[in-house]
């Protein structure tokens, strides 16, 4: 086996929102994983498809389209790594449904055969935060700035639940993102109802906007009370709702929202400009300033 083949490699599943709306998330993901020595491949992926809306239409269709995506990675014999809870939930669920039932396997493979594909259930679907967590030591080594931010961690539902995904994580008291942000020199602040939903999932973001906003309002209120500098999430869909929908609320919270890969990228020394942080609707300027300060502090110490 060549050295390149021995390198830890995943197929990156960017998901619609990261690539089409927040390229900063996609960009920082490439940079971060390169720096911790993990190789990412690209494949021709469609939408995962989104769990709330499309799974609500028809489970079997959702599973078939999800498996089609997984097949892309299967062909190169690598596991899929998602950077979005929605994609993670979708692909994981599709994979499980496929693995658990012969009937489903026959259904999917019959459909896939017509476009020249087939699947054997052997690919795993991973979430990038688990990969980062596994490489915590590499993350510490690659870090150039101790960010010194107080962050409010937002898990998002489909990473934690259904908890069958992670038998070793307590869905009522997880400690994964916290470990990563702490490694980046941030303080994870505790706040009321920390594990609650952002309010976007299940088709509510588009279909029942007002409800989504009310749930969001509840969440942001609690974050503000915690005194956090920003929200850190691991899901571009939550990210979008937290960032874009803030402006639609009566209350002007103006809490910056960062995807964990962006935060990690900043800690790895990528300049905010190179991440197109200005695509965020809520300005991240204050955070950038704070980071600069932390950087200067650590520079002068040296």
């Amino acid at each position: 086996m060549s050295e390149a083949e021995m390198q830890e490699t995943y197929s990156l599943f960017p998901g619609c929102i990261a690539k089409n709306m927040y390229p900063s998330i996609e960009k920082s993901t490439y940079t971060v994983f390169e720096k911790i020595g993990v190789k990412l491949l690209n494949h021709r992926y469609s939408c995962c498809p989104a769990p709330g809306v499309f799974r609500g239409y028809d489970r079997k269709t959702h599973m078939t389209l999800g498996v089609r995506n997984i097949v892309m990675a299967r062909q190169d014999n690598v596991d899929v790594m998602t950077i979005c809870n929605g994609c993670y939930g979708s692909l994981w669920e599709a994979n499980e449904m496929f693995r658990k039932s012969k009937e489903n396997q026959d259904f999917v493979n019959e459909k896939l055969a017509k476009i020249g594909l087939s699947y054997d259930g052997k690919t795993n679907v991973l979430h990038f935060v688990d990969v980062l967590h596994k490489h915590l030591e590499d993350v510490r080594n690659a870090k150039e700035v101790d960010l010194g931010l107080k962050v409010a961690v937002h898990y998002g539902c489909h990473y934690l639940r259904p908890s069958e995904k992670h038998p070793d994580i307590n869905p009522e008291s997880p400690h994964v993102i916290e470990d990563v942000v702490e490694a980046l020199g941030c303080e994870s602040v505790d706040f009321k109802n920390k594990l609650s939903c952002c309010g976007a999932g299940g088709g509510v973001w588009s279909g029942a906007e007002e409800l989504g906003l009310r749930v969001l309002d509840e969440k942001l209120k609690n974050v503000r009370d915690s005194g956090a500098d920003c929200i850190v999430n691991i899901c571009p869909f939550c990210h979008m709702h937290l960032d874009q929908s803030q402006g639609k609320l009566e209350e002007r919270y103006k809490i910056p929202v960062l995807h964990l890969s962006e935060l990690t990228g900043l800690a790895f020394g990528i300049r905010p400009k190179h991440l197109a942080m200005h695509t965020h609707l809520i300005s991240t300027r204050d955070i950038e300033k704070k980071i600069k300060k932390s950087k200067k502090g650590s520079d002068s110490e040296e």
Partner: peptide
Amino acid sequence: LWLCTTCYN
């Protein structure tokens, strides 16, 4: 039915 955010709580 369409108001569930599928948070799985």
